[in-house]
Simulated assay, not measured.
Amino acid sequence: MGTDLNIVLRVKELKHEASECLSIVFEKPQGLTFKAGDWLDIRFPVPEFPVGRTYSFASAPTESDLMITFTKGVSPFKKALEKVQPGETMLITQYGSNGFLLDRRSPAVFIAGGIGIAPFRSMIKEQIDSHRPLAITLLFSNHRNDFPFRAELEAWQHTSPSFKTIFVVTSEEGRLTSKKIQMELERSGIEHFTTPRYYIAGSPQMVQNCEHHLFALRIEKNRIKTDSFEGY
Rank of each mutant, 00 (worst) to 15 (best):
Q182M: 09
V168R: 11
L185S: 05
S162F: 07
I181W: 01
K179N: 14
F167L: 12
E152N: 07
F167D: 06
M183V: 06
S178R: 11
E172P: 03
F149N: 15
E186K: 10
Q182V: 04
T170V: 13
E154A: 06
T165K: 07
F163A: 08
T165Q: 04
S171C: 08
F149T: 14
Q157W: 03
P161S: 15
R150T: 06
K180I: 09
R175T: 13
S160C: 15
E152Q: 09
I181D: 00
L185N: 10
L153K: 07
R150K: 15
T159W: 02
S171I: 14
F147G: 01
M183H: 09
R175P: 02
A151C: 06
Q157I: 11
E184W: 12
P148Q: 10
F163Q: 11
T159H: 02
E152K: 05
V168I: 15
S171K: 12
E154H: 00
S160M: 13
W156F: 10
Q157C: 07
A151K: 12
V168G: 00
E186T: 14
E172N: 12
E152S: 03
F167I: 07
S178W: 15
S178M: 13
E172L: 09
K180N: 03
S178A: 15
G174I: 11
F149Y: 14
R175E: 06
T165V: 15
W156G: 01
L176D: 04
Q157K: 11
S171W: 08
W156K: 14
E152M: 07
F163K: 14
T159L: 09
F147H: 00
T170G: 02
P161N: 11
